[in-house]
Amino acid sequence: MTILVTGARGNVGRRVLERLHAAGHPLRASGRTPAELSVPAGVDTARLDLNGPDTFEAALRGVDKVFLYAESDGAKEFFAAAAEAGVRHVVLLSSSTVGGQDAASDPLAQHHAAVEDALLASALPGTVLRPGAFAGNAFGWSDAIRTGKPVELPYADAHTAPVHEDDIADVAVAALAGEAHLGRTLTLTGPESLTFREQLAVLGELLGREVPVRELTRDEAVERMGRFVPEPVLTSLLSQWAAAVGKPAGTTGTVQDLTGRPGRTFRQWAGENLGAFAAQD
């Protein structure tokens, strides 16, 4: 039976697809425009718009398991179609914001919670992954670091426990491999809590030069980040960061529990991606 991987162009979905392919699983990768997908040889592709129920039946035909990127619009219809198609395991990529203290008023948490609730109501067997901050969020600083400008950000002393996208993919594949994790909700973090300032210091150390930081006020952050971040998402992020100033982020051992090895550190992620931050000649 086939495993359907949604979000196959994304940072996590792409990694999940590569791992499953290497393990020899029959696969189908989906996207709104299948022709734009870059997949390993022999991997089937299908058009799937998670907001378009008319695309569900064909994408799910013959599918046994699904790796699903959370999309609240159309979630109920998707799970109904998956049940009709005979899907017996959904691994849902959600967010740790769902378990946060302010989840009831957090737009990001509400978006992901709606998908989790739809999965639960569907009675489809599922595993929910709730990663925290991605290590790859640091790419947002790359232009400033590469050009020697100060990194401008609000709440520089806010803590996160950045999780490596490879670890999220490894956990997803472990969950898809069998039935041991059916019905579980797994919160994923990196192995250590670091402030944004500390993450930038790691990058600076590896680059061999200081990375200057200029801390923005909240109003400045709203004005600058609001140009490319939707307002509900920005409000959620700023509130999370404000609450995390001076408060080390909790960490979980989920990665080690499911993979048998410690989670990758932010320093490891930074070393693997240092070229994105290096000065250009």
Rank of each mutant, 00 (worst) to 15 (best):
P248L: 10
R15W: 00
E152A: 15
A144L: 13
F134S: 03
L216T: 01
N51Q: 13
A279V: 08
L176P: 10
W269K: 03
L37R: 07
G74Q: 05
D106C: 00
L234P: 14
Q110K: 06
H181G: 02
V222N: 06
A70S: 15
L274H: 04
A278Q: 15
E231C: 06
A123H: 10
H21M: 00
L48H: 07
E179R: 13
V63C: 06
R14F: 05
K65D: 02
L119D: 01
L182V: 14
A221R: 04
E116F: 04
A243G: 09
G7I: 05
G126H: 12
E198R: 13
A113D: 11
T45F: 05
G250Y: 03
V229R: 07
H112P: 14
G204P: 12
R88N: 05
V128W: 09
V63P: 05
L4Y: 05
T185V: 15
L194N: 11
G126V: 04
P26G: 02
V229K: 06
P26H: 04
E220A: 13
F134N: 04
L60N: 04
G86I: 02
V90L: 10
R61H: 11
D166H: 06
N273R: 11
G136Y: 01
R9Q: 15
V245T: 12
G275V: 03
P40Q: 03
E192G: 12
L216E: 09
A82I: 05
S105Y: 06
V91P: 04
L206C: 01
P125K: 01
L37Q: 01
G31T: 06
E18L: 03
V213S: 04
Q199F: 12
L92H: 11
T254E: 07
G253C: 10
A161R: 05
A242L: 08
T254G: 12
K76F: 03
L50K: 01
G275K: 08
L119W: 02
D117M: 07
L68G: 09
V39H: 02
L120V: 14
A81H: 09
N137F: 08
A180P: 01
L27E: 08
A46T: 13
G178S: 12
A8H: 12
G10K: 08
D167Y: 06
A75H: 08
L120I: 08
H181L: 09
T147M: 07
A80P: 02
G100E: 15
V229F: 11
S239G: 15
A270I: 13
L124M: 02
A279M: 04
R88I: 00
G13Q: 03
G271L: 01
E84K: 15
T254M: 10
D117W: 03
E215S: 10
P191C: 11
A83I: 00
K65N: 02
G271M: 09
A180N: 09
E165A: 12
R146N: 06
K149E: 14
L207F: 14
T127R: 10
